[in-house]
Simulated scan of single mutants.
Amino acid sequence: MKAVLLILCSAALLGGCGKDEEAAEPVRPVLSTVVQPQVQAQLGRFAGTIQARYESTLGFRVSGRIARRWLDVGAQVKPGDILATLDPTDQQNQLRAAEGDLARVQAQWINAQANARRQQQLYDRGVGAQAQLDIAQTDLKTTGASLEQARAAVSQARDQLDYSTLRSDNAAVVTAWRAEAGQTVSAGQEVVTLARPDVKEAVIDLPIGLAEQLSKDLTFTVAAQLDPAVNTTATLRELEPQADATTRTRRARLTLASTPAAFHLGTAISVNLSSAVTPRSELPLSALLERDGKTQVWVLDTQQKTVALRDVTLIDRTASSIVVASGVQPGERVVTAGVNSLKPGQPVSFDEDAQ
């Protein structure tokens, strides 16, 4: 009898333990991420170069054959430095001819002065005719005008000779030669391109669709491709109105907030575009739970180590992520895996260092 009672008591105890175990919720391990606020929307990343804001293409002001190029591409020049010279033979001949004409007219003017003085003296003594005096004075004025014309011709010939030497107007860097020594060029033809290195800007090509949506609140982050640690911000200065027919892009020129020393002319750069947006958060697509037309996520209670469903508002969705406008707060932790096997209040374990 005692043995039977002992067996019955043991069975009752075992039955009670089983009910407690069934009542306890299993602790489920989950993956999670911390909600990070996003106030800038990334619009893209583009390659570009550092260029001079001010460039000028120079040419000779007279025609002729280029006798010599004094500098190569990449050379730095100061104001007044010689870039190239023409064969000056034609200009020298013109100057000599003009100087000869000037000497001839000067001799005529001296004779006209002497004749005018003589006729004036004769007229004052009463032995000269008024007509002769008038002729002498008119000849003096005509010769004086010819003298001024001859002097102007000499000055012009000297200028033409000076124009056969091409000089730099500013401190700059030679970036391109468009004519070679021995080549005959016409007046105004492009010969050399100079870039002023004191003011630099970033130049990139943007797709037409993006270029048409650019706004003033856009932020450009400019970094050197070889060393991203060298970077600065920039603002849009100019957007070319016409798209390139081949690439279907429009060129944008950006004013740099500062110019790092490593930003030399021609430096390859990477430009990130971002725009200010209303606060939002980006989460993995695996965090999304869709039921009964609702979009929800599991939010972790890090103190109680349980989960709760939270309705969220989506504003964008990609193949790997969602962008949430409301429903979660920065710093909260959201489950990113196994969302279909959880239920409200379920105990979970998670890696508190996971971001």
Rank of each mutant, 00 (worst) to 15 (best):
K216V: 15
G293E: 12
D162S: 06
S274K: 08
D81N: 14
D134R: 13
D101Q: 08
R53V: 08
E282K: 03
L265Y: 10
T193L: 04
K200V: 01
E148S: 11
W70E: 15
L133D: 04
L314P: 06
L6G: 12
R65D: 05
A252M: 08
V62T: 15
V335G: 01
D351T: 09
L13I: 13
A171F: 08
R237Q: 04
R118E: 10
V127W: 12
D124G: 05
A187Q: 05
N93W: 12
E99V: 14
R68S: 09
T142G: 01
Q225P: 04
A157G: 03
L206N: 00
D292R: 07
E21A: 15
P197H: 06
T233P: 07
K19N: 02
S326R: 14
P344D: 09
Q160N: 15
F60A: 06
A337M: 11
A152D: 05
P26M: 02
Y123R: 13
S10Q: 09
L122R: 14
P284M: 06
W298N: 01
G16K: 07
V203K: 07
A97K: 15
F60Y: 10
V230T: 13
V328I: 12
M1R: 14
R310L: 00
S326W: 07
E55V: 15
T219A: 07
T232M: 10
S326Y: 02
I50P: 00
A176Q: 06
V27T: 13
L95K: 09
M1T: 14
A23Y: 11
A12D: 12
Q108P: 09
D20F: 03
T233V: 04
W298S: 01
L140P: 04
Q40Y: 12
L140I: 02
D169L: 08
V62H: 00
E332F: 05
D353F: 05
S270W: 10
G209Q: 13
R158K: 10
A195N: 04
A157R: 04
D292G: 08
A211T: 05
P79S: 12
P260M: 10
R45K: 12
A103P: 03
P29E: 11
P347D: 08
Q76C: 00
A257R: 13
T318P: 02
R333W: 09
G80Y: 12
D227N: 06
R68W: 11
A262N: 02
E25C: 11
T235H: 10
V334T: 09
V34E: 13
V154M: 03
Q51R: 10
A11G: 13
L300C: 03
L314S: 06
T57N: 09
S155I: 03
D205M: 13
V339L: 00
A325S: 11
A195G: 08
F263P: 01
A47H: 13
L300A: 05
R237N: 10
L283C: 09
T232G: 04
R96N: 03
W298H: 01
L214G: 00
G15D: 05
T302C: 11
S270I: 11
P241I: 11
P241N: 09
R248S: 10
Q121C: 12
L133W: 07
L254N: 00
V127T: 14
S32E: 06
D124K: 07
Y54A: 13
Q160C: 08
G293P: 06
V174W: 05
A308S: 14
